[in-house]
Amino acid sequence: MSLIEVRDLTKTFPYKNSTVTILRGINLSIEEGETLCVVGESGCGKTTFGKILAGLHSCSGGSYRYDGQEVNTFTKKQSVSFRRNMQLIHQNPYESLNPSSMVFDMISAPLKHHRKIRNFSELYRETAALLEMVGLTPVEDFIDKYPTYLSGGQRQRVSIARVLSMNPKSIVVDEATSMIDTSMRISLLDTLKRIQRELKVSYLYITHDLALGRYFAWEHRLAVMYLGQIVELGPTPKLIGDPLHPYTKAILSAGDIEGRESYDLKGVDIPSFHALPPGCSLSPRCPQMIEGVCTVTEPVLSDIGDGRWVSCHLYREE
């Protein structure tokens, strides 16, 4: 049984007097201790998906099971334990930390409330251990600082420590490095990877930067999202080394890898969610479009062996 299991998940938002569907049938699962990286361009629905997994939004249709239990049918007690086990690291550490509380207060508050630690010296010990784990050492230099004194990377480490204080089983990491200086991103990702090895936590890592996703999820799996659907899912080295879906090929080609054949989509603009093309949503831009098939029937994400899944008529079994 997977820790996170999502079947035909949809999300619809009200829009003017009608509705718009942002997530259109997502199927995936995440095991304990595994990383799944979701890559997609801005506006493809990846953040909405992250919020649903984190329990901030409910889904409109389909099923989302956490630890074998349907999230929509949680009892109050189950819901409390779900919120403890599932945590979210926000994109912008300049807004996600309270500017008027010290690092110690921010990390010890959840320890007090949820782990019922009341003794000060014990709280201090626990907080220091968490700061050490996220690499904010020497601890004495950071524990009594306010967020204003910290750099973006250090702030993001504080928010990781705060999340870890709950001892979660899974963490949604939404573009956690995009606000951090380029020269410090790798060390933050390395810290997250080390924490995963030590604590066996699962990550859903959301990013628009394929190269960062490749680095972070190299031993794990990568999913490519386009207009609210997963178009390709597979082990990272295979997906990057030998992309199957035309959209994956195109974004890899745009990333300008030398020695790779250039692969361009037709047209320039992404269709809007309000006027989706019939059939495959990539069909108007796809250079390998099959007339009469792709423009009519919507492809489904299907298993093609080797742990790889792709949603494209080109790989359909006859």
Binding site: S42, L210, A250
Partner: peptide, 8 residues
């Protein structure tokens, strides 16, 4: 503010 393909 643009995605990879439009960017290129």
């Amino acid at each position: 503010a643009l995605d990879l393909i439009t960017q290129k």
